[in-house]
Design a protein around this nucleic acid. Structure first.
Lengths: 335, 335
DNA sequence: CTGAAAGCGCTAACAT
DNA sequence: ATGTTAGCGCTTTCAG
């Protein structure tokens, strides 16, 4: 690797001059600049970002932690975050947290050691308290994606899951359904609790009775969705519609229902959550609650940029989910 | 940010000693080590990776460039690559190349400036020659993912697209089809040319006539797939099966076909390529050629590790695609 | 076992 | 307009 010193020798100038042209400083004569540029390209010079960052104490780089580099959900998020950050002339390093406290911590440490100018965190398992103390001591702005921690409110970008649950349920109610089953995510996750709360409030608003019997806690997987329907059957609970806390479970439920000889939406309506790609492709296409994932990543990036003093965009902290009506829901047929 | 010096002061030792305990050097007495460890945690000390890398001239980090952080294809690849690299005690920085020569170059420069120990490159547009010269001068091992450059053969990990095209076509032939349309990707891409070559060789092997009339060059998008069917219709070309160079186009074609009143697979069989998630969910589920994407990322990581002298795994350079038969293909019905 | 000191490559005053 | 030089925080001889 060639250094700035070698370039300076070849060009017959001082390292300071080379540094100036590398950094686009005005105070260099055109002639000198050309000489330096020539030397640089002759040597294939690449500035050493470590040395540079060490000297300036900034990296021009933001770090992002996502649950899993492969998640379809994260793809869009990373993309739009990177886009916004690139447009600000910075870079984004993405790492995955792998759904474990240790590796989430590890990912954060990794980024911190790289002295990122800010952190965009999508943390699944790290407890609130840890995040709060992290925010206090880490020295760089952190923004939380898809998570709301009251103490860190203005560092959060999140979606109103209560509203999502409410919208899904209300849609079903408006179609005439009154016996609506709910397949929830793991209840230790706030997302799931909020979606369930939305479900309850829609029920309540309509004067419908909430019944534990119709609620199955599951695990956000397709298999879990299937199993939930089986449980419902075993409980002998009557229902004409299902609200699943994500599309995976909704699709699993759909499969199970079909296997039971019930067709969707004729015998049973289904609403999912997330609006993943496959929601458009299943048969019937799934009615679901869409989260503006791209907007999410973008606003998180804006927020990080803002908190690090780079920009001053207007930030949108909370997003409203939107109901996307497709063909898995239909008016209740009189029995 | 607290430095090694502050820790050394608090612990009443020299910086060298602190450095030793940070790096797990044996030559430190337990007592001293404990003192230092205590000081470190009291100060919340995080080693500065820049200073460290500057001093050692290594980063313990590999860099990866993918076309687009959001691609479903890339998700698995990143995941398994990161996994393999993490298991080797290193880190992976992922950046996107955005399908443009400039940003692919920019992404590579970014990583090079971060002095990565190796580069995993999934390059869509950068020409072979540029890559070859890059490999010569960049000073770190580079491995090419999903691309075969003869001059850099042992730095490539790729899939046999000829075989993929052949398998897809042969499957259709075995089902009795002889008039098989082919919707290709952009022909400036080698992938597409190879898949087409596979198509031709399967035809040839079966003694079937190749006809330009049945080949439509498209763009790997769902819309492109739809348009291709329209073109075929306008050409008035008779066909009973379609081989599309990716699943997106296959699904687009399926939609178009249905709109034309032809049902799949009764009137027309369809084979896709890639085996993306949605292939399982469309109706009918798509027969397609699967690429072992995960294995890909993993082998690329192994290769990079090996070339950088870290490990010595046995590397698999070329992968065979596999035909996944689902329900979009069926035996030709006698007219 | 521990400390002192010389860099690693670059930036940013400060000189000239 | 250009050069000199003192760090940035850490690792690594080389001496104790």
């Amino acid at each position: 690797m060639t250094t700035i010193r070698e370039v300076s020798k070849l060009a017959n100038v001082s390292v300071a001059t080379v540094s100036r042209v590398v950094n686009g400083n005005k105070w260099v004569s055109d002639k000198t600049r050309d000489k330096v540029l020539a030397a640089m390209s002759e040597l294939g010079y690449q500035p050493n970002s470590f040395a540079r960052s060490l000297a300036t104490n900034k990296s021009e780089t933001f770090g992002m932690v996502v649950g899993d580099l492969g998640g379809p959900f994260f793809g869009d998020m990373m993309n739009s975050a990177e886009d916004a950050i690139r447009k600000a002339g910075k870079h984004l390093i993405v790492t995955s947290g792998h759904d474990s406290v240790d590796s989430e911590r590890g990912a954060i440490d990794f980024l911190l050691q790289r002295r990122v100018d800010g952190l965009l965190l999508h943390l699944d398992v790290l407890p609130d308290d840890d995040i709060i103390s992290l925010s206090d001591r880490c020295g760089v702005p952190i923004v939380l994606v898809n998570r709301h921690i009251p103490e860190l409110s203005n560092q959060c970008v999140f979606v109103d899951n209560d509203l999502g649950g409410y919208l899904a349920t209300k849609h079903l109610i408006e179609l005439g359904h009154s016996e609506i089953a709910c397949i929830t995510g793991p209840m230790y996750k706030k997302d799931a609790r909020n979606r369930l709360a939305g479900y309850r409030s829609a029920l309540e608003e309509a004067g419908l009775q909430y019944s534990d019997n119709l609620v199955i806690e599951s695990d956000y997987t397709e298999l879990g969705g299937k199993a939930a329907i089986d449980k419902l059957t075993r409980r002998n609970a009557p229902y004409t519609a299902v609200f699943a806390h994500n599309d995976h479970m909704a699709i699993g439920a759909m499969t199970s229902l079909k296997a039971l000889g019930k067709s969707v939406p004729e015998h049973c309506s289904i609403v999912g959550y997330d609006d993943m790609v496959m929601a458009r492709y299943v048969e019937p296409a799934l009615t679901t609650v869409a989260i503006p994932v791209g907007e999410f990543g973008k606003q998180a990036a804006f927020l990080a940029l803002k908190l690090s003093g780079e920009q001053n965009n207007q930030i949108n902290h909370q997003f409203d989910p939107k109901l996307v009506i497709r063909r898995s829901t239909a008016p209740l047929k009189p029995a």
